[in-house]
Design a protein around this nucleic acid. Structure first.
Lengths: 343, 343
DNA sequence: TACGTTTCTGGGATCGATCTCACACAGGGA
DNA sequence: TCCCTGTGTGAGATCGATCCCAGAAACGTA
């Protein structure tokens, strides 16, 4: 592996001059620059990342810690970030915490040890206090995307769960639904809380409150969707619409509804959240709230790149809008009654 | 940030001794070891990765280059690798090539420049010749997973596309299907070629050949599934079963079949490949061939870890078995005819 | 006592870049 | 002529660890 000294010898200059050419700063005569570039090409010289990092304490690595890379949701987010980083000539070093706070902490510290220039956190749980302190001391700029507030974050990307849920709920209410159940993700997740707030806001517009609908809590998993519907149906109450906390829950709910002979949307309307890969492929195709995950990932990267470029963003927040995607799983109960009466 | 010198001063020893304790090699008296460990804890010392890497030319980073992290398929694979690496105390630095050979090449070089200890390649396209040479010269051990043969790979993980496709085809043939169409991924992909070989093998067992079924080629995308069915139906030929190159293609095919009023599986049976997230959620639930993606990712990591531990695996290949998952999208044409006749 | 061997420790070179500083020279203005 | 600014170049310190080597101390054996 050729070193800077090899290049300097070959080009008949000092290492300093080579360094100036490589870093493209300082004065270098055109003549020597050409000679050096030639030598670099001939030797196939590529600067040693470690040596550079040791001296300058930069690595051109951006670190990312994500709850779980295996999940399509986060994979897409990371993919968006990756693209934006690559375009800016930075590498993205992603580590997955597998939903364990302890592992997430270790991942953060490990990334800092790699002298990463910046950190993007795709986490749901708050960071442990001692780790927070280490991050603060390191001075590395942090951008969070989703999840809870993070005191060391210089900027954050938030997906507008509030408005998304409000729009979805408004949609159901506007169509005439009143007996509605919500299968919510756990309240430990900020996302769930925001969505509930949105739901409450929409209900308020119709003179109703959260107590006027039925809410069940569980994990963001298909299993819970299935179990939640079982619970609701066995309670004997009757619903015209289900608002699932996300599309996985909706998929489980759909399965359970079908199993109980309930047709969607003829008997029950169903609405989800996320617009993940299979929302479109369910039968009926799921009406849901799209989260622009890839774009959010890109925005996070761009914010961090701005911070790295020295821009003074303190406590910046970008709120990414959601989009209500209308498909086949929701209909109006009034319409159905009219059809029934005519028959 | 505390350095090894700070620790040595605090513990009243030389840097060498501290280094011996940290690396846990060489002789150190128990007394000094304790003093050093104490100093490390008090100062919150963590070794500088760059300095260590510069001197020793190791980084404890394993590099991964993947076609596209955003895709759930690869995300799961990478997730598996990630877990195995973490368990072994290595970081996984993943870069996505976004399906461009040029970007993949750059990613590989970049990882080598980061002095990664080993490389895992999740690629579909062969590596460019000059990059191959750089990899070879670097001496970094390489493990590939899927994709084409790679001359510099010391070990490879192959998912058994041949057997998977053969089993799937056998299943259709055993049920009595004879008028079958295959919507294949492009022949540039080794996976497609292997699956075709499997299909041919199964046909052979029934005294048939590839020429006895209809094969259409396209991308591994839903779009192609839809378009492929359109082509088939407009050709006027009649099929009792469709073997889709993967589940995305199957999803598109299903959509097109429904649009043309064909019921699955009553009119046409449909089988996919992958068992991805939405296979189970299609209506009817898709019969398909499961690829154990996460496990394959783990196995790749384990192979690489063995290589790093100095084991002599030269041209090792692990073939990961697939599993035919029976769901609702396939039925027997004979059975259907019998039912029809009785009616 | 003399000697080897094992245990223990520190000095100092080294990895490959960056970066400050000193210095040389050219050209322009006072 | 002198000084100043801008341009161009190289020497050498520096980043923080690793690791070879020399040598001291402890211990056993002939």
């Amino acid at each position: 592996m050729a070193t800077i000294t090899d290049v300097s010898k070959r080009a008949g200059v000092s290492r300093s001059t080579v360094s100036r050419v490589v870093a493209d700063n300082g004065y270098v005569s055109e003549e020597k620059r050409q000679a050096i570039l030639e030598a670099i090409a001939e030797l196939g010289y590529r600067p040693n990342t470690m040596a550079r990092g040791l001296r300058s304490n930069r690595s051109d690595i951006i670190g990312g810690v994500v709850v779980n890379v295996s999940s399509p949701f986060y994979a897409q987010m990371v993919g968006g970030t990756q693209m934006a980083c690559r375009a800016a000539g930075k590498s993205l070093l992603v580590t997955s915490g597998h939903a364990e706070v302890e592992a997430e902490s270790r991942a953060i510290i490990e990334l800092l040890d790699r002298a990463c220039d910046g950190l993007i956190l795709y986490l749901e749980n708050p960071i442990q206090g001692d780790v927070l302190e280490i991050v603060r001391k390191s001075g590395v700029p942090v951008v969070t995307i989703g999840g809870d507030d993070c005191p060391v974050a210089r900027a954050r990307i938030t997906i507008d769960n509030f408005t998304g849920a409000r729009e979805a709920m408004r949609h159901l209410l506007a169509l005439g639904h009143r007996r509605i159940a919500h299968l919510s993700g756990g309240l430990i997740y900020r996302d769930s809380r925001e969505r509930l707030r949105g739901i409450e806001a929409a209900l308020g517009e119709y003179g109703m409150g959260l107590s006027d609908i039925r809410v069940e809590y569980g994990e963001f998993e298909e299993r819970f969707g299935f179990a939640g519907i079982e619970t609701l149906l066995s309670s004997g109450e009757d619903f015209t619409a289900i608002f699932a906390g996300d599309d996985d829950i909706a998929a489980g709910a759909l399965l359970a509804l079908k199993r109980h002979g309930k047709r969607v949307p003829e008997d029950v309307s169903l609405i989800g959240f996320d617009d993940n890969f299979h929302a479109r492929h369910l039968t009926p195709a799921l009406t849901t709230v799209r989260q622009p995950v890839g774009e959010a990932g890109q925005l996070a990267a761009n914010l961090l790149l701005q911070l790295l470029a020295g821009e003074k963003l303190e406590h910046t927040e970008i709120i990414v809008p959601t989009l209500l995607v209308l498909r086949e799983s929701v209909t109006s109960p009034r319409l159905l009654e009219a059809v029934k009466e005519r028959a």
